[in-house]
Structures are given as structure tokens and as C-alpha cells.
Amino acid sequence: MKELVLKKTVFSYQGHSFSHDVYTCPQCGKVLIPKELAEGRIAKVEEQLEDK
């Protein structure tokens, strides 16, 4: 088992991409999205991208 590390990750939605630092497994690259991020910033950006 490995400690997670902050890593720049590419997100995409509705044809737009951007990157954000999120905790990632240094070994397999799996990304962890905490609830606060999903329901906070991510939800907001999703809505903005849908509205654009």
C-alpha cells in the first residue's frame, strides 16, 4: 500500500479539458476525488460548462 501524492490530473467534460492537482496513487495512478471536491468545485465547473 502506498501513500497518495498530489499530482496534476487532466479532467474533461462537455468537450473541455483542464488540469487540477488531486491525490493519486503513485503506483497505479488511480485518482481520488473527495466528496468536498466532487460536490463543490467540480459540480460548479460542471454546471458552468453545461451552461456555456
Binding site: I33, E39, A43
Partner: peptide, 14 residues
């Protein structure tokens, strides 16, 4: 303990 979702996709890159 909690359930949530998002619509965005993230891309694993090593």
C-alpha cells in the same frame, strides 16, 4: 458512510 458522484472524467496519466 457517504455516496456522491461527478460527471467529469479524469484521465490517468503516469
Amino acid at each position: 458512510f457517504s455516496v456522491y458522484y461527478h460527471r467529469m472524467r479524469f484521465h490517468k496519466d503516469r
